[in-house]
Nucleic acid binder design. Structure first.
Length: 428
DNA sequence: TCTGGGGTCCTAGGACCC
DNA sequence: TCTGGGGTCCTAGGACCC
């Protein structure tokens, strides 16, 4: 496993959501901009000018800073996942021009193996990647390079804070530099150290990445298990997390939303759950998967008294991705969650035990007729129409028409790159 | 009035088996 | 009085990620 010539680059798009918005509205490179979570709840991405504003921070509830938008000090956008998803695909395709081994890690991050580039040319090569992505997509990126994924993350963390580096830092084989960076990195900023472990380590006096790296193995294993031990090995330059080129099939599929306003009628909750189930089923069909189990949850607002949260699940007799069947199960479960005295703020549907739709195990008592292709054709037709004419052009009556509970998205930009009718126009 | 959504992996403990 | 040892599978909950 130990390979000394290992070389991994972490590519990270700078303030990705905010940058996507700015690509199509260039004023937003300069104006303070925040992108909001779904339901316009809180800040999830912000550009540099916004970061300089007092009181504006990631995770900040939007209603606390909304006044800044009235006076023009701040611009807000709702999350436009159609746009971000498409822009992400463009960035990733560009990256694939530069390495045979690319792992798409998240919507705005990728790991690249750079083992095919000699040590002396790597920094220059990374600058070329950066320039090309910028040219092809308009998105600015940062690149950290090291022997392991975790050290590449460390390098990337510093790139963003040191302007002179111009977006690229290679710390491969540079152990003095590695120690310098680790000594100035707070332990909670290490990739894999979350809130709990951060607090625990600090209480033990382990407050920097360097101190964490130099702990004894048994100590780490005892307090943080094998996950923690792998992390520490990675900080020492021993690669435990390889670049995974092939994406593994997903194991679950969730659709959940906070409601635009509290749900007080059972009928509304049922409409929401039907809608979520239909969306989840659609996702499964796109990936040729079928669900063997389903769970539904619903809760009141966490920020109000008498918080109520409940979930229930069931196994399906036979795995399926057929919307009507899944909806039937979901509504049966949803009935158990309802309470007259609760105002619901959020609900969701989780599909699990996913299997390939062509390898479904039929149950002993199944009366499924494999010759009957009608349910399958019905779903194909449904998906095709909605793909062509827009989401929910054709839908189930149980999804509701009014949708009083619909998620807020007051500041939504256009789907510039995926809809003909929303294409940007250039006036000559 | 208002506070996100969608994932993964690991571990402990219980049920059950021989 | 005395009560094994080893294994698997499943689930819930806890940790983490973006």
């Amino acid at each position: 496993m130990l390979k000394t010539d290992r070389c991994i680059a972490l590519i990270d798009c700078n303030s990705f959501y905010a940058s996507c918005e700015a690509v199509f509205d260039p004023r937003l490179w300069k104006l303070p901009l925040v992108v909001l979570s779904s339901n316009d709840g809180c800040v999830v991405s912000m550009n540099k000018p916004a970061r300089a504003l007092e009181g504006v921070d990631k995770g900040k509830p939007f209603f606390q800073i909304r006044h800044l938008t009235y006076s023009g000090k701040l611009v807000a956008r709702s999350s436009n996942f159609t746009l971000y998803g498409d822009m992400s695909n463009r960035v990733m395709s560009t990256l694939k021009l530069f390495s045979p081994a690319v792992q798409i890690y998240s919507i705005d991050e990728a790991f690249l193996s750079l083992e095919h580039i000699s040590h002396y040319q790597r920094t220059e090569y990374a600058h070329r990647i950066r320039a090309t992505v910028r040219q092809h997509t308009g998105i600015p990126i940062s690149i950290g390079i090291a022997e392991t994924k975790t050290l590449a993350k460390v390098a990337n963390h510093h790139v963003k804070r040191i302007a002179e580096l111009d977006g690229v830092l290679d710390i491969t084989s540079n152990y003095i530099r590695q120690e310098e960076l680790l000594a100035t990195l707070a332990v909670e900023d290490v990739w894999g150290i979350g809130y709990r472990w951060g607090k625990m380590l600090e209480a033990e006096g382990i407050d920097t990445a360097l101190k964490l790296r130099d702990q004894l193995d048994w100590y780490i294993k005892k307090h943080m298990g094998v996950v923690g031990l792998r992390l520490v090995f990675e900080l020492r330059g021993i690669s435990c997390l390889p670049v995974e080129v092939h994406s593994r099939p997903r194991k679950s599929c969730m659709v959940s939303r906070s409601f635009g306003k509290p749900v007080k009628y059972q009928r509304e909750l049922e409409e929401a759950i039907t809608t979520f189930t239909a969306r989840a089923a659609r996702k499964l069909r796109q990936e040729h998967l079928a669900a063997g189990a389903l769970s539904v949850f619903a809760n009141s607002s966490r920020f109000k008294e008498n918080y109520y949260s409940k979930s229930a699940s069931c196994h399906l007799l036979t795995a399926t991705n057929h919307t009507p069947v899944l909806v039937r199960y979901a509504l049966t479960i949803a009935d158990k969650l309802w309470r007259d005295d609760v105002e619901f703020a959020k609900a969701g549907v989780i599909l699990t035990r996913l299997t390939d739709q062509d390898m479904i195990q039929l149950s002993l008592f199944d009366d499924y007729n494999s010759e009957d292709e009608r349910p399958k054709h019905l779903m194909e037709l449904l998906d095709e129409l909605n793909e062509r004419f827009g989401q929910e052009t054709l839908k189930f009556a149980a999804m509701g028409l009014n949708k009083c509970w619909q998620t807020r998205a007051q500041y939504l930009s256009k789907r510039w790159t995926t809809r003909w009718d929303e294409l940007p126009l250039v006036k000559c």
